[in-house]
Design a protein around this nucleic acid. Structure first.
Lengths: 341, 341
DNA sequence: ATGAAAGCGCTAACAT
DNA sequence: ATGTTAGCGCTTTCAT
């Protein structure tokens, strides 16, 4: 049988649909308590369930927000970063009684095409997680009138951003290496199209400068935030005549790749090579020795981004946020071998 | 300004909305090519974008399917299993031009309440990934008229299931251990509320029986598919007077936990303890030594489930599927120490 | 206080 | 071949 509608309830009680609607929604028009009681009772009795789409057509609000993540080729949903973010998100969203819309066809899209795809999802707003998108892309999205928030990305000031303090994070990491007496320090960065990747490289340079550590070009390697990139980085470092004794990676995935490739090649960690990651995702904890990392509160950031997006959808102005990092010292960092001799 | 509708296009060309609708949809009514051209042209010129909700109200199809995963407490989206599944899903869905609806409020729900929540999402169908739900739960969902498919779960024959061949997988794993001369073999299982967990334990028992390996109660430990459960399992085994020399885990997460706890305790793997996981998720590959595991084609299973769900939504009957496992031998398995002496 | 009716954007049955 | 119109289920304005 067809689903029960407010019409059915109205007919059942011989009252008008408007009264039923007001009773069900508790306003805006006043409905006598007695009538409301009866409406609610029959609604329950008939097993009435509102059609959210019909409501959407009028109110324009769907109570669903879209999610677009950093795309690493085909593997859209494979990063631990995304996992942590989604957990934070899911919690806040559940509290706000909202669900998510996962876009499956935005990979590789930019500009107008991307905006079109987002519009097509009919969501109230969109959350970008560590996107590899340009300010121009966001301009199109902004022009399309889509409320959005960016985590770990650069919206060009068009909307609020939720960021982490990459500068302090990198500074503390380099300080640790300096204190451990490392002088040959390497770096594995992410795609320059990604904001955090850019910021971390810049922060790393600044941190090295302020700690008097030389930035040697061959010790700096560009990756793409994947385990494989970390492995490639190791192969690169390993063939240098004087490889770095410590390497900072722009995320944990690459640190794990570096870690694994080094161990497979017979290098002992941290004696032969100290490694520092970024994020504090699970992967940095499950390998042995566990990886020292710069924690960024991903779940909290995603959660904050959700709240910010809600505000923006409601039409309020919200400021960007920068959440702090924390250096988590584990077992992948020590004094370099030659130093201890 | 308000969004462009088919009315606007109709007015612009002084034709009727139905003609516009048919032209835009390419049917069911024939529209002369010349007219269709002009409709399409003005649609593009006016930057027309269909309102999917309005269409949904008539057709009842949203082209969005819901996703409900195994819930491990609060951490809804944290398992590598889910990641792999989502990748497979995203690919098929993108091809079918469909998006996902991620439910955030189904954790802990059962029976009617769960069915209500799913209905509220207004999706075309729901995909359950390794759910911890009873046949009774699925009965309610079925009665609510929601098309659904279950991956790694038991729908009680109410719908199609996509499963993996746990029997063969476990059989091969035990055969490997037998061949390596292990006699004291342990097992770490998952929650009995989960179908694969039940099946794997049963399969493990059968495999041991057929290989003449004794099933010693204290070598069998119940976990919950988390890393922590694997760590707990290690602590349990470690305090036995004669611990098992090899342990099979019902998934990789637990194998990783066992692996890590053993290494932290100073046990060498595989010499002191051989470990076999299940799934072949990334985590089994990044630890050192890499973990021997029973691969199940998670992405392919999720992808198959998507296709099956599409069929069911279209009203066709579809058979359940069982996909094969494959034993991936890596470095966490060897002859036991005492054996080599 | 409450009923009637317009209309959200679209599809499809019903005209012509 | 194509225009007119009745809804889909709901909210809200306008009457009464």
């Amino acid at each position: 049988m067809p689903p029960v509608t407010i019409k059915d309830i109205a007919r059942e009680l011989s009252i008008s649909v408007s009264t039923v609607s007001y009773a069900l929604n508790g306003g805006p028009r006043k409905v006598p308590a007695e009538v409301r009681e009866r409406v609610l009772a029959t609604a329950k009795a008939l097993n009435y369930r509102p059609n959210r789409m019909a409501r959407f057509m009028i109110t324009g609000r769907r109570h669903v927000i879209g999610l677009v993540s950093m795309e690493t080729g085909e593997e859209i949903y494979l990063s631990p970063y995304l996992q942590m973010a989604m957990n934070g998100l899911a919690e806040s969203a559940a509290r706000a009684r909202q669900d998510f819309h996962l876009f499956t066809r935005t990979a590789g899209l930019h500009g107008v095409a991307l905006a079109e795809a987002l519009l097509d999802g009919q969501v109230d707003g969109v959350l970008f997680l560590a996107p590899i998108l340009s300010v121009e892309d966001f301009r199109q999205i902004h022009e399309a009138g889509i409320p959005f928030v960016v985590v770990g990305g650069d919206s060009g000031g068009l909307t609020a951003e939720v960021l982490t303090d990459n500068d302090t994070g990198m500074h503390e990491a380099v300080a640790l290496l300096k204190q451990l007496n490392h002088t040959r320090v390497g770096f594995v960065g992410g795609q320059p199209g990604q904001r955090d990747a850019r910021e971390r490289e810049k922060a790393m340079r600044a941190a090295c400068a302020s700690h008097g550590i030389a930035v040697v070009p061959e010790n700096w390697h560009e990756g793409d935030f994947t385990i494989e990139a970390g492995e490639r980085a190791f192969r690169h470092f390993a063939q240098l005549t004087t490889p770095p004794t410590a390497v900072v990676c722009a995320n944990d995935e690459m640190a794990v790749g570096l870690h694994r490739a080094a161990q497979v090649a017979g290098w002992s960690i941290p004696q032969s090579l100290s490694i520092i990651g970024f994020d504090d995702t699970i992967s940095s904890r499950i390998v042995t020795p566990a990886i020292t990392t710069i924690r960024q509160p991903i779940a909290a950031m995603a959660s904050a981004a959700f709240s910010v997006l809600q505000e923006i959808i409601e039409g309020r102005e919200v400021a960007s946020q920068v959440l702090p990092t924390q250096l988590i010292i584990r077992s992948s960092t020590s004094r370099p071998k030659e130093d201890t001799l």
